[in-house]
Design a binder for these strands. Sequence first.
DNA 1: TCGTTATTTTAGTTTATACTAAATCATTCA
DNA 2: TGAATGATTTAGTATAAACTAAAATAACGA
Lengths: 111, 111
Amino acid sequence: MTPVAALASPRRRELVRLCWDEPRSAGELHRALPDVTFGAVSQQLKILAEAGLVSCTREGRHRIYRAQRAALGPLRRWLEAQWDDALYRLKLEAELDEARRGPAPAPRRKP
Amino acid sequence: MTPVAALASPRRRELVRLCWDEPRSAGELHRALPDVTFGAVSQQLKILAEAGLVSCTREGRHRIYRAQRAALGPLRRWLEAQWDDALYRLKLEAELDEARRGPAPAPRRKP
DNA sequence: TCGTTATTTTAGTTTATACTAAATCATTCA
DNA sequence: TGAATGATTTAGTATAAACTAAAATAACGA
């Protein structure tokens, strides 16, 4: 699953937030989310880990999850790569938009 | 639908990309995506419009879609607001992570 | 007004996702 | 080794998403 897709789910965003500032075991994360089973939490953590948004290390019989803050950088860059190379034209485009919104005559086609 | 959720779908990302540099009618967008029906394209465009990622204006009997590039700004800020207030601690944290990964003795609990 | 074109909307279907409950695996400690 | 604990995995189910096909809407020109 792509990082954006992983972050599309409120539940998974909550999990990332919960282990953002301090590492937490799967059990702690589960206890923080009383409306859901342990299994469900584990599944969502797996998705987040595969997307690179959290890391998981063992400590004894616990598994400690930590938000991978640095993954937000690549995520932003990934979003930017989709579109933002054109971002410098933003202000110009905005003006053009306004202009085009006015007249609206000929049915438009690809140039 | 939240902007991240809207962008989680590859189909919708493609649509945004297609009308990023130049405005396009729904029909043009459909023609660029041969493996899907007109109805499906229209539905996805509606989702994108509601998420604020594209705008839609009428021109005669066409509907012209434009990517709302400026929406990426708020999206990034939204992502940042979830977590990034802690981002300045990133390098420090990375070091701590390394340190913690080594020993791994006592089962950890909330402080 | 009527037919044509461009698009949206609705109803129904398929596919994917999130969940529960129960089984399984791994680690610690008696 | 065996019981207890902490977590994952599996199988099955419910809900949500994406799609198709067809009907409805809207604007234009004859």
